[in-house]
C-alpha cells in the first residue's frame, strides 16, 4: 500500500513544479526548484509570490476534497455518495450565492455554514433507517436538487453583475486567491489530523455488515455519523475557500481505490490524487486559452472523468 503512494506523490510534486513554472513568463523547472529551496534567483517574485501561493491553495483544497469524498464514500459504501452529489457543495453554493448577491455576509463563512447545514439535513433524512447507503444517497440527491433550484432563484432575482460573480464562484476558481485561503483550509486539515488517524482505523470495520460490526463491539451507526461528519467538514471547508470545484471529491477516491485495489477508498491516496487533480486543473485553466483564464472547476471534470472511465474499462477487460 505505502509503496503505491510514491509514484502519486511524485506526480503531485511534478504537477506543482509545472504549475509554478508555466505561465505568461515561463520559468525553467530547475530555476523553480532553486527559487523554492534557496531563493535569490531572478524569478523569486513570480515563483514565490505569484504562483506558489495559488498552487499551494490548489493542493490543499484538492486534498481536502479528496479526503472528504473518500470518507463519505467509504461510510456509505457508495461511490455516488460524494459531497458534490449529496448536497454539501450545493448548500455551500446557495449560502455563497446569497452572500455574494446581497452582500449581507462574508462569503467563506457563509459557504462553510451552508455546506454543513445541508450535510446535517441529509444526515437527518438518511439516518431514519440507520443511515443505510441507499436512503442516504437518495436524500442527498433530493436535497442537492432543491438547493440548486434555490441557487437559480437567487441568481435570477439578483443584479447581473452580482449574479456573474456568483456564477464564477459556483464553478470554482482559484483566480486571485492564495495563501490566506490555503491557510484557512490548512488549519482545518491540521485540526482533522487526529480524527483522520482514527478514521483510517475505524473505516476497517465500517466496510463490514452492521451485524458483524456490532458483534465486534462497534456501534456502526454512531461511527458512520462521526466519519461522514468529518468528511462533510473537510469538503465544506475547501468549498468555502475555492468555490464549488466539482467532481474532485467524487473521482479522486474512486481512482485511488482502483489504483490501490482496496475494498474502500484509501484516505492518503485520495488526498494526494485530489491535490494533483486540482493543481493540474488550475494549471490547464490558466494555460489552455491564455490569456483567458478558465476556472479550475471547469477542468476538474474534463481531466478526472476520462481517467476514471479508462480505469473502469481496463478493469472490465482484466
Amino acid at each position: 500500500m505505502t509503496w503505491r503512494l510514491l509514484p502519486i506523490a511524485a506526480v503531485l510534486a511534478a504537477a506543482i513544479v509545472a504549475s509554478v513554472s508555466l505561465g505568461d513568463v515561463s520559468v525553467p523547472p530547475l530555476e523553480v526548484l532553486r527559487s523554492l529551496f534557496f531563493g535569490g534567483t531572478d524569478y523569486d517574485v513570480v515563483v514565490r509570490e505569484l504562483r506558489l501561493p495559488r498552487t499551494i491553495l490548489a493542493a490543499v483544497a484538492g486534498a481536502a476534497f479528496g479526503l472528504g469524498g473518500a470518507l463519505i464514500q467509504a461510510v456509505t459504501r457508495n461511490p455516488l455518495a460524494s459531497p458534490d452529489v449529496i448536497g454539501v457543495t450545493q448548500g455551500a453554493g446557495l449560502a455563497a450565492t446569497i452572500a455574494l448577491t446581497t452582500g449581507a455576509f462574508a462569503v467563506a463563512p457563509a459557504a462553510l455554514a451552508g455546506g454543513l447545514l445541508a450535510a446535517a439535513v441529509v444526515f437527518g433524512f438518511g439516518s431514519r433507517a440507520g443511515f443505510t447507503a441507499r436512503r442516504f444517497v437518495l436524500a442527498g440527491v433530493a436535497v442537492a436538487f432543491a438547493l440548486r433550484a434555490g441557487i437559480e432563484v437567487v441568481l435570477t432575482s439578483a443584479e447581473v453583475i452580482d449574479a456573474q460573480r456568483a456564477q464564477i464562484w459556483l464553478i470554482g476558481s482559484l483566480n486571485g486567491r492564495g495563501l490566506e485561503e490555503a491557510t484557512a483550509i490548512g488549519i482545518v486539515l491540521l485540526a482533522a489530523a487526529v480524527p483522520l488517524a482514527w478514521a483510517a482505523w475505524a473505516l476497517r470495520i465500517s466496510s463490514l455488515d452492521d451485524d458483524v460490526a456490532r458483534g465486534l463491539g462497534v456501534r456502526p451507526v454512531a461511527r458512520r455519523y462521526g466519519l461522514a461528519a468529518l468528511g462533510a467538514l473537510l469538503a465544506a471547508s475547501a468549498t468555502a475557500q475555492v468555490g464549488a470545484v466539482d467532481f474532485v471529491a467524487l473521482v479522486a477516491p474512486q481512482v485511488a481505490q482502483r489504483i490501490a485495489k482496496t475494498e474502500r477508498p484509501p484516505l492518503v491516496m485520495s488526498a494526494l490524487l485530489g491535490a494533483t487533480l486540482v493543481v493540474l486543473a488550475d494549471l490547464a485553466g490558466r494555460r489552455l486559452l491564455a490569456p483567458t483564464q478558465l476556472p479550475a472547476g471547469v477542468l476538474t471534470a474534463a481531466i478526472g472523468a476520462p481517467y476514471l472511465i479508462y480505469l473502469l474499462l481496463r478493469r472490465r477487460r482484466a
Binding site: S207, L208, D211, V212, G215, G217, T262, E263
Partner: peptide
C-alpha cells in the same frame, strides 16, 4: 460493547461479504 465483544462472539445469518 467492546468488553462484551471480548466475551461473546457472534456469526450473523448470511453476512454481506466485503469486496476485495
Amino acid at each position: 460493547p467492546r468488553l462484551v465483544a471480548q466475551r461473546l462472539g457472534v456469526l450473523p445469518q448470511a453476512p454481506l461479504v466485503p469486496e476485495g
